[in-house]
Design a protein around this nucleic acid. Structure first.
Lengths: 95, 95
DNA sequence: TAATTTAGTTTATAATATAAACATGTTTAT
DNA sequence: ATAAACATGTTTATATTATAAACTAAATTA
């Protein structure tokens, strides 16, 4: 688009954008925390985290705590850059 | 979402957002003009204009000029309000 | 008059988002 | 000890959405 820069489809999604927004403001976040904050279903969240991870926008670490699985997420440099580009591109549309 | 207001799905779409953005800045716009500015295909544009029209976000007037069909679009008050709400909700996500 | 262009619409397909169903193990109640 | 309920996710099926290809209809040009 001439007047409108393309919007990274990976970020132009309500849930994934919320995830990235959250992760920008913390060092790392647990699956259940993100689930609560975004009010997403576990299934949906799992899928979207996987997509962000496969794109290299976040890092996912799986471990155990109190014998229970624990999924921890962290935004990457690539993710931060992508987010910034997205916000910048979005400006074309907001005025 | 608690921390994140929902984003109007009708506006959270690259092409429809570009259309609305364009229409905000002009009194009215012709189909071909919007097509050029957004670099959308005619079919896609036709579908998306129809959706915006059905939602009452824009008004579409069909006439003829030089014996050829002429489709003219105009944003409505409802559309302006919806756009403003969308931008406002989006702020939750951008920081 | 046949091919091309203009201005779109309709329909088929591809991509995406989402939730329902499932898996695996843990804790609690009986 | 065993069953029921809970925790933490993943996988898969479905619904929604976006998009382009195919089509229509009239006008213009060769």
């Amino acid at each position: 688009m001439s007047d409108f820069k393309p919007l990274d489809p990976l970020l132009h999604s309500q849930l994934r954008l919320a995830i990235m927004s959250l992760l920008l403001s913390v060092k790392s976040a647990e699956f259940t925390f993100i689930k609560e904050k975004t009010e997403a279903t576990a299934g949906n969240l799992s899928v979207q985290l996987d997509k962000l991870s496969k794109a290299g926008y976040i890092e996912i670490e799986k471990s155990f705590r109190d014998k229970k699985p624990l999924t921890t997420c962290k935004i990457t440099k690539k993710g931060i850059t992508a987010f910034e580009s997205y916000v910048n591109a979005l400006k074309d549309y907001l005025n």
